[in-house]
Write a protein that binds this DNA or RNA. Structure first.
Lengths: 210, 210
DNA sequence: ATGATTTTTTGATCTGGATCAAAAGTGCTG
DNA sequence: CAGCACTTTTGATCCAGATCAAAAAATCAT
């Protein structure tokens, strides 16, 4: 995305139906679930955010690198996974309107075990850790945003822990199907199985008896 | 703790060797792992915090109530649990230098499923949700503190999720023993078992083969 | 399309840990 | 210090789900 020498918007095929002003709305809307965005913060946010598109199958973040960017999904589906005995284990899925990154790697500026890849062609907003730091340092409401959005994720993690400890494979599947109903049909079975901590054979059999 | 009819502090044996000024140090120290505490924040914090002692076995928070306080443990051991099929399932343990509360109940001012009880006689600092709100509203560094301390807990939750999905009962036990080495010997076996999502019979057998 | 990969399903077997039951410790309380 | 309640251990059995193997179906590249 960019402007030509006359300052006019260049219409690339990707964005032809999404002029910039509307483009950012999904991001603003996300923040406004937690805080008010004043003009100044909006401006800093907008000017520091870049766009990127990943092709299906493309690696978004490599565990061999320190993660320096957080990605907000505008459209598409990304996944965090790690390797165990040479096999991919899905940690979580992220779709429209959610941030994804390798949390510890991003915040501590160290390497971590997580890879991120694209399960679909995906358009994201990128925010570099340095810019994120700038926003935290200069906009206290960004700190609040982070606190509030994190606590809502907390609830999900605690539910997941309970689910892993005390439910049968079938209940795990049913819970997943209910909670992630909108993205379920976009996910390969094997990835769902490893997310749930069961084998894909078991998941296939559970699904068959319906 | 309380005052007599002359308004003087009654010295209970509990606090005789811990003058108030030193008393707060553990709390300050905790905050200073994440932020700098200026005099003003220190003052507001100190003046809003109250003390409380729970006897072993006492209920600290009842799931039938909305949780209005967050407890910082100065000495002792508390536990969060919930009921499943009439039996207590341990969610987590908290010891010296940690905050405990019923997160969703506290933040959303709704009821939640979690109880908190005392596994030992425990001294805590209490902070009421209204005071916490005041601190968040008036000290941006408190928002930062919350963001940073939460992200460190995040890491633990993610590790726990991985551990629940892919490790044998024996590995779960060994991991727990390693990570919670300092409190392990203070915990009844049955509670550890339910924390790990295994039966106490299995945990007992694992422990026996050492 | 068409052959090659990858993903999913189906089948047969095996096992870690649950469940049920009871004995042995441990520790309060009067 | 005896009696009662709670916790931990030990034993026997059972089953949900893992593992191993291979066929069937879906997806992809040429």
């Amino acid at each position: 995305m960019g402007t030509n020498t006359n300052g006019q918007l260049i219409k690339s095929t990707k964005y032809i139906n999404l002029p910039v002003i509307e483009h950012h709305e999904i991001l603003y809307h996300h923040f406004e679930k937690y805080i008010k965005l004043n003009a100044s913060l909006k401006h800093e946010l907008t000017s520091r955010i870049t766009f990127k598109t990943f092709q299906k199958g493309e690696l978004v973040h490599d565990a061999d690198m320190i993660c320096t960017k957080s990605y907000f999904i505008q459209k598409g589906l990304l996944r965090t996974y790690f390797l165990k005995d040479g096999k991919e284990v899905t940690e979580y899925f992220c779709s429209e309107g959610e941030w994804i990154n390798s949390p510890r790697s991003l915040m501590q500026r160290t390497k971590d075990i997580y890879y991120i890849d694209a399960l679909e062609n995906t358009d994201v907003f990128c925010l570099h850790i340095n810019d994120l730091g700038f926003l935290f340092d200069n906009f206290p409401e960004m700190e609040r945003y982070a606190r509030l959005s994190m606590s809502s994720i907390f609830g999900h993690l605690m539910e997941r822990i309970t689910s892993l400890r005390f439910t049968s494979a079938k209940e795990k599947y049913e819970h997943f199907y209910r909670v992630y109903h909108d993205i379920y049909h976009r996910l390969p079975l094997g990835m769902v199985a490893s997310y749930l901590g069961i084998t894909q054979e078991t998941l296939s059999r559970i699904r068959a008896e319906k």
